[in-house]
Amino acid sequence: MDKVYPDAHAALAGLLRDGMTIMSGGFGLCGIPEALISAIRDSGVGGLTVVSNNAGIDGAGLGLLLETRQIRKMISSYVGENKLFADLYLSGELELEFNPQGTLAERIRAGGAGIPAFFTKTGVGTLIAEGKETREFDGERYVMERGLLADLAIVHAWKADREGNLVYRKTARNFNPVMATAAKVTVAEAENVVGSGAIDPDHIHTPGIFVKRIVRCQPYEKRIEQRTVRKRSN
């Protein structure tokens, strides 16, 4: 069975339908599956619920799917970098569910690991806990959060082999490995696709069992949101 597809459109063929839930990896614009997002935009699929820590920026990342109004609802922890997002939300065109970042990550991890719910102290006594079950363990209060699953996860890796084993690079790892575990189908784009055996098995971050389809993403310029540098002292 060959998991490698010739391009992003082919890698998503037959997987997209209106109203589905999609997890999309990345933190800010770092480690986002840009090629797969573009292919989802081109497909015209709509009414999407998208689980992603952020919502891209105007003109990049998930910002592309906001421009075309393909997203109905976002589940995120921080959406501050996107003006269109604010406009759509304030006009009622877009639904938004905020999750604390760690709760979001753990909901996804739990979903992928077959755990339907867990208790956390994050958000106890805040708006986030409203309407949720709370319970005391060892004298401390915890709130129950549900595991999260999606129909499709799209992730960005640095390297993939033909079996779907993935390696991420630096902080571009972020949400990608947990999302890869928590969907019915996971499609990975990778900057490099290598032959089986070319990745040291000890260095694999995501085992191939979690990845159904792989596509090599064409070289593109990765965007930097906040370019911060220091001066060389002469």
Partner: peptide, 15 residues
């Protein structure tokens, strides 16, 4: 006001 989200702040102060 437009709310940007809590990011990781709730997890940090709780943990």
């Amino acid at each position: 006001r437009m709310v940007k989200g809590m990011g990781g702040a709730m997890d940090l102060v709780a943990g």
